[in-house]
Amino acid sequence: MTTTVFRIAGDLEVRRLGFGAMHLPTEPGPARAASVAVARRAVELGVTLIDTAYLYGGGANEELLAEALYPYADGLFVTTKVGVARSGPSGEWRLDGRPSVLREQVERALRRLRVERIELLQLHRVDPETPLADQLGTLRDLRAEGKIGRIGLSEVTVDELDRARRIVDVASVQNRYNLLDREHEPVLAACEAAGIAFLPWRPVAWGDAGSRAEVAAVAAETGATPTQVALAWLLGRSPVVLPIPGTARIDHLEENLAAGRLHLTPAHRTRLDRLAEASA
């Protein structure tokens, strides 16, 4: 039986199917109203972990979530990411893990999200031009100040995760991973061994037509959709996996979250496991 909850860092209990807010439009008008409705519906359906980032509109996505969900329901956590900024030569986005930038982005996220503490704060990318100890040391300081509850990483290798864990306690890792894209299998294995939450972004992505056909066949046999099959596979892949599928449509949201009730047999899982080899 697949468990439905996970305790990040051993104490932050969340439902294992979360919601990624990246795709929610934030511009004024009907699209923004629809985004607010989607975020609220996610919470109504039991989502307790919502993922955003400063990169998503330069904070606009964070502001949208606060508009939609504040005051937050008990047990609802909005996690955000820092470490990408418009600090390139012409104001373009670039990796920027300088301590002053990270601190400023966290301070602003607190104001936008209307909270005194971000329970899970993730480093969006490791900035190769700033010492890792400086980047994580800043987040560790912010945690000591009570502004961050737990520290996570995104798009890291096993070596980067190992080095990071010598500096701070790592609560989560957010890497690209799905049924057909398992490049970060070693990172997932490392997270499972250490009890670290693994939040796959792009949890649903399709490869060649043959692979899609196999997914469609399993979907037909289980009375589900291919998307639900892909998410159910992730939930059964490891107990530390917390998928965060994103959408701007309520019908897709409801489809995604229904995947938590889908049971895949061992035979189904064996067939799906083989797809990574076919798509390699």
Rank of each mutant, 00 (worst) to 15 (best):
A276E: 06
A42Y: 09
V84Y: 00
T265Q: 11
R261N: 13
G20Y: 03
P186K: 12
R111I: 07
G20W: 01
A31C: 09
E155A: 05
A171F: 06
E62L: 09
Q174H: 06
L65Q: 12
L199R: 03
G97S: 00
P239N: 13
L17F: 02
L45S: 10
P131T: 09
T79L: 01
Y70A: 15
V43W: 04
D273M: 13
V229P: 00
A220F: 14
G246F: 02
H268I: 04
R103S: 04
R166V: 08
R111Y: 05
L110I: 05
R125I: 00
P28D: 09
M22E: 05
E192M: 01
A66F: 11
W201T: 00
G195P: 11
L264H: 08
T157I: 15
P25G: 06
I167Q: 05
L234W: 11
K147T: 00
L123S: 01
A248M: 05
G18Q: 01
V115L: 05
H124W: 00
T3C: 08
A171P: 03
D96N: 02
Y54T: 07
Q135K: 10
E192C: 01
E155F: 00
S238M: 14
A276G: 09
Q135H: 08
V204M: 08
R111F: 06
D127I: 01
S154L: 02
I50N: 10
L120M: 06
R212S: 13
P28S: 11
V106Q: 00
E129T: 10
L275K: 04
N61Y: 13
R125P: 02
H252L: 10
L139Q: 10
P89E: 10
H268Q: 05
E13A: 15
P245V: 04
M1K: 14
E27N: 13
L55V: 04
Q174G: 01
L153S: 04
V156G: 08
L55Q: 02
T130G: 01
V168L: 05
V5E: 15
G20T: 03
A66Y: 10
H23I: 09
V241K: 15
D127R: 00
S90K: 15
T265S: 15
L231G: 00
V158D: 04
L257W: 03
A144S: 13
D251K: 14
P243N: 09
Y54C: 06
L113W: 04
Y72Q: 07
A258Q: 09
L264M: 12
A217W: 14
R15A: 02
T247L: 06
G260V: 07
I148S: 00
I8H: 09
T138C: 08
P266D: 08
R16K: 12
R212P: 11
E62K: 03
L262I: 07
Q122N: 10
A276M: 09
R269P: 11
S100K: 14
R114C: 03
R103N: 05
L69F: 09
R98I: 06
D127H: 01
E119T: 09
R111T: 12
L95P: 02
R7H: 13
R249Y: 07
A171G: 07
L12F: 07
V38Y: 10
A109F: 00
V158E: 04
P245Y: 04
V170T: 13
L110T: 02
Q122R: 13
T79W: 02
D141F: 08
A171V: 11
